[in-house]
Design a protein around this nucleic acid. Structure first.
Lengths: 339, 339
DNA sequence: TCTCGTTATGACAGCGCTGTCAATTAAGAA
DNA sequence: TTCTTAATTGACAGCGCTGTCATAACGAGA
């Protein structure tokens, strides 16, 4: 049925070991032999059997993408990037969603994570937020000695990471609002489990401080990155006398920013004339709502790609090096200068 | 390092074959032995090596989810359902996005598909639209004898499918609009490669005919399920004298419906007072935009789950049986009765 | 008690590949 | 030419599991 290495070897008139060498780009094969074997392999449309190869090398050629309930758009971009990198290295991506956040205790988390990794021994793991900051998950990864890369804004536990500089991005976005004359700027924080949430707030606060503007407690609301939490937070921020109302709101992600626009609409507050709004992430949503959202474009696809690239790299020296990718501020209709 | 079947056998004082039998629930093992072996395996936290098992059985315990550029939300739900079913059967899901639509010729498509499946021999394939209707892909699947389930509204090529009745859903949604007094109803069609697009239009047309209302050609616009195409189509439908304008627009999916709402907003047409809008899919977007979208809720998660369930079923008799799942019409603010 | 039909268990080969190491060949050096 | 060294190739074991088939143990009936 399926073509095996033996078939190729026979047809090429060499031993299976030589074929193996050619296929794995090992040295010490005569150039002529190499070409010949390659040609035969192509002709026979031979592909090595992953299971056999895996058994012999105790590798699986599988990379796991472990995530917990992120937004579909985010995970789908990460995934796409990861798969691209996998393909280039002849790896495959298996996806493993988990349900750890909030619900489970530390021990429970350890157990669940271990189970996933025991059942399917992979060659590498990509962790997305908020799992990339989860102590239990990281502990298991270390215990099992699984190569892993975190998608996260900052290095942790000597594990390599790929991310962007959330703090600076938020800083620059806040500067942008300030440059438009806004001073009463509301801020909606993200989920406390995501380290990026804290960094975004920090960037906002730093920009305000730098500009000599006080951060008013009443203008900072807690959200959790969900649309619903954005609705809640927006109501809090906007249900005050008009003179106490912020002239701009910076939400920690696009979903919550969309919620602000929606709530403002319901309250008869015109966006952007009476209220400027900006978000973070540049999800497709940002261009789809009206007015289009001013937001920070994250290089999500690239994060997935780079993280995976790092995992499939031959060298095993992926010790704690981190990659910070560029962001971009997308200026759209939801922000105007204060009159 | 890793605990093997031999370790379990030694510790349990039986042969590896007996352990194997227990683990695979094979008959002819004394109940006492079975319990004992199970206990030892648990104690040792033993999990069979997938590669070895795969090599011996020539199965991979892998299911591939093959898709081509669908909306992130859609694929993410399908994926979630598929993974759930995989877990129950101790399978794993590998994702394989392809880029076939539009660009590639038939032969090119065959080549690319074959390459994906040759490189990673999986035990089953889940096809999502529009690939579930792609002749080239289906031909390769048949040629390679790969078990597969299509996520699609109707049976094809004797391949089992899981889907929903798009035609009836569109019919009922149109009836709903008609019941609200709308007669000048605009329709935005979906991507021609998706069989569901045609069925949705058919359902719309049937409802109109049944109600004795003519389908006006000028009120039917072509889209391709993308937001951008929705903008285009909406402009077409709305850039006419007010008396010629539709009083309601039924877009073939939510993204295009969102585009209609956005375009209407820009043109100063109030939704829903001057224009009712409804969509299809019930993406998160539907609840996030303002006004919230009246739409058809597809059981997307369940489709992924059922399709995978079918694939991992022991029996190999999955010949052309199709499952039609229920839909639900979600009435929200974007549609009002015609005054 | 012995025999026969089951049921339970184990020995062993082999799945398709790679790692190790030995054998062969080619290429220089003397 | 002959010896030495390096480059090239192949034989074979073994990765961890399951399938096949032989063997052992167990009961039931004579």
């Amino acid at each position: 049925m399926k073509v095996t290495i033996t078939d190729v070897a026979k047809k090429a008139g060499v031993s299976i070991k030589t074929v193996s060498r050619v296929l794995n780009n090992e040295p010490n094969v005569a150039e002529k032999t190499r070409e010949h074997v390659k040609a035969i392999a192509d002709e026979l449309r031979y592909f090595p059997n992953l299971a056999a190869r895996g058994l012999a090398t105790s590798k699986s050629f599988l990379i796991a993408l472990i995530y917990d309930n992120p937004t579909p758009n985010y995970i789908s971009l990460i995934q796409r990037g990861a798969i691209e990198a996998c393909r280039e290295a002849r790896y495959h991506l298996v996806v493993e969603p988990m349900s750890l956040v909030g619900a489970a205790s530390y021990d429970e988390k350890v157990k669940l994570t271990r189970e996933v990794l025991d059942r399917l021994p992979v060659d590498g793991v990509i962790l997305t937020p908020p799992l990339s900051d989860d102590k239990a998950v990281l502990a298991v990864l270390k215990e099992l000695g699984v190569k892993s890369v975190r998608i996260a804004p900052k290095n942790e536990m000597a594990l390599p990471c790929v991310g962007m500089d959330d703090e600076t991005a938020a800083y620059e976005m806040t500067q942008f609002l300030l440059s438009k004359g806004h001073e009463r700027i509301g801020f909606i924080q993200g989920h406390v489990d995501h380290s990026s949430a804290g960094l975004r707030y920090a960037g906002f606060a730093r920009a305000m401080r730098t500009a000599g503007v006080d951060v008013v407690d009443d203008l900072v609301a807690q959200g959790d990155f969900s649309y619903e939490s954005g609705v809640q937070a927006a109501r809090e921020l906007l249900s005050v006398p008009q003179e106490a109302r912020p002239t701009a709101i910076f939400a920690s992600n696009d979903d919550m920013a969309a919620a602000v626009i929606s709530v403002a609409g319901q309250m008869g507050i015109d966006v952007p004339c009476s209220l400027s709004v900006c978000g973070f992430d540049d999800t497709p949503l940002a261009r789809v709502i009206w007015p289009a959202l001013t937001t920070v474009k994250q290089p999500i696809y690239k994060m997935g790609y780079q993280a995976t690239k790092e995992l499939v790299r031959k060298a095993d020296d992926l010790s704690g090096n981190s990659q910070i990718l560029d962001f971009e501020i997308k200026v759209r209709g939801s922000v105007t200068a204060l009159k």
